[in-house]
């Protein structure tokens, strides 16, 4: 299927915060209260539209368990966006964010867009992390922030799409070198045709037009 861009994402965060459920809600529009724990990494994909352009998202959902870290780290490279997820009902998952962030920053390309997600917002009665705390953390570290519920689907679309918008804007601003696939972005076949109108101040990225 034709698309203008392909963005690669990675989803990270502690075990049990809902990474796989967010992905499933986003790709399949359903919630799975009980599921097999992720082993290593798993893959999902979906098409979205931004600014009238078809954008393909390819998403690596990683296992939260520490022992898999050496495997999952290699997926940071080549990701244009990261969803860093914690569980608003478990304070420890919020406390670990700094570690996750360090890990992400260390292993990814410096322009990677990171969206901080406080998941399980439907469980208000069990909340341990205030929304303001999430906002403050995001502000302090230059992240985008949303609270989501993979269960009710609240903000799930938005989380994935806003991340894509941010990446898209960065492309328009010329921040991303879209000819370097290690940045997690590819130009799609659809884009090749209307290339000139989209490139913004990118210079000489024409060459990538045909790839997919």
């Amino acid at each position: 299927m034709a698309y203008a861009y392909l963005f690669k994402y990675i989803i990270i965060g502690d075990t049990g915060v809902g990474k796989s459920c967010l992905l499933l809600q986003f790709t399949d529009k359903r919630f799975q209260p009980v599921h097999d724990l992720t082993i290593g990494v798993e893959f999902g994909a979906r098409m979205i539209t931004i600014d009238g352009k078809q954008i393909k998202l390819q998403i690596w959902d990683t296992a939260g368990q520490e022992s898999f870290r050496s495997i999952t780290r290699s997926y940071y490279r080549g990701a244009a966006g990261a969803l860093l997820v914690y569980d608003i009902t478990r304070r420890d998952t919020f406390n670990h964010l700094t570690t996750w962030l360090e890990d992400a920053r260390q292993h990814s390309n410096s322009n990677m867009v990171i969206m901080l997600i406080g998941n399980k917002s439907d469980l208000e009665s069990r909340r341990e992390v205030k929304k303001e705390e999430g906002e403050a953390f995001a502000r302090e570290h230059g992240l985008i922030f949303m609270e989501t519920s993979a269960k009710t689907a609240s903000n799930v679309e938005e989380a994935f799409i806003n991340t894509a918008k941010e990446i898209y804007e960065k492309i328009q601003e010329g921040v991303f070198d879209i000819n370097n696939e290690a940045n997690g972005i590819k130009i799609g076949p659809q884009h090749a045709a209307s290339n000139a109108t989209l490139t913004g101040n990118q210079g000489g990225q024409q060459a990538g037009g045909g790839c997919c």
Binding site: T27, Q32, H35, D36
Partner: peptide, 15 residues
């Protein structure tokens, strides 16, 4: 049932 199906999802299918 949906839940069961979902539970099988990981092994079974993305789309």
């Amino acid at each position: 049932d949906a839940c069961v199906r979902n539970a099988l999802h990981k092994q079974q299918s993305l789309p």
